[in-house]
Design a protein around this nucleic acid. Structure first.
Lengths: 129, 129
DNA sequence: CTAACTGTACTAATATAAATAGTACAGTTA
DNA sequence: TAACTGTACTATTTATATTAGTACAGTTAG
């Protein structure tokens, strides 16, 4: 079910957090869908269950999943609002990235167009400037 | 000259790289301006010179500074073009962040406006939609 | 109820990475 | 020459990540 590249130099649990978060955000993992068991995923990836649990604990702390002892771990449905803190962080990161892109000579108009395409891609929106 | 928060849990040399990169991008450190000496900065931050050197080595590898043995380390003037690889990475990061912001319920129009403000802030551009 | 699953919480040991300490050398400059 | 500069090492210590193993309570199907 999961294919993760664990060959990188970044900590595995951190890679797991990012990968799973990405799957949730991109709706590959649907709301309330059950995630692989700690032990099952550990078996599939041939790593220690504790490492998986560490990733799941982090994902739960960040609000992306919820775990029920005895049942399993599930995708937490996103609730607009209550995300002000996280959004503030993302806005800051966005600002840093955009600043660097401009510094590197990326055409501002192109950046805007790219983001608009990303934002309205399955929303029927207009990408015109 | 530098004020860095080294209380975080991220590696110090990594924080240094990000902080200095930010100062360069935001034009706080001007092109060809000399950076603090490895030993001087180590003294100011009360950390080991080797840690500073590791950060400088990384910054040089990423193209943000250049070092001349016997003279010092300096800010490398940005050259538009030749940044395709780095820009591709940034575009991917941008995409991930924007996707998460939308997932968290941020109004797309607000995201666009914020980016435009960032892009055209000292360029005399128009921020209208 | 039992058996087999679930998440969770530990301790201990090992492996990997980061940071420090110290020394050395060649290029630069006043 | 003297005092700087970056760079390149080795060795040591410290911090973090990962593994290994065990245990316990909640859940669920038979």
């Amino acid at each position: 079910m999961f294919e993760l590249d664990l060959r990188s130099r970044a900590p595995m649990y951190e890679q797991l957090v990012e990968k799973i978060k990405e799957l949730i955000i991109n709706n590959v993992l649907k709301p309330d869908e059950q995630l692989p068991t700690v032990r099952v995923l550990a078996g599939e990836l041939t790593i220690n269950p504790n490492t998986i649990q560490k990733a799941y604990r982090e994902l739960e702390h960040r609000g992306y999943i919820y775990s029920v002892p005895g049942k399993g771990s599930f995708v937490r449905p996103a609730v607009p609002g209550n995300n002000a803190a996280r959004l503030r962080i993302l806005e800051k990161e966005l600002s840093i990235i955009v600043t660097e892109m401009r510094y590197l000579g990326a055409p501002p108009q192109e950046i805007i167009t790219r983001i608009k395409t990303q934002l309205f891609k399955d929303e029927g929106g207009n990408v015109d400037d």
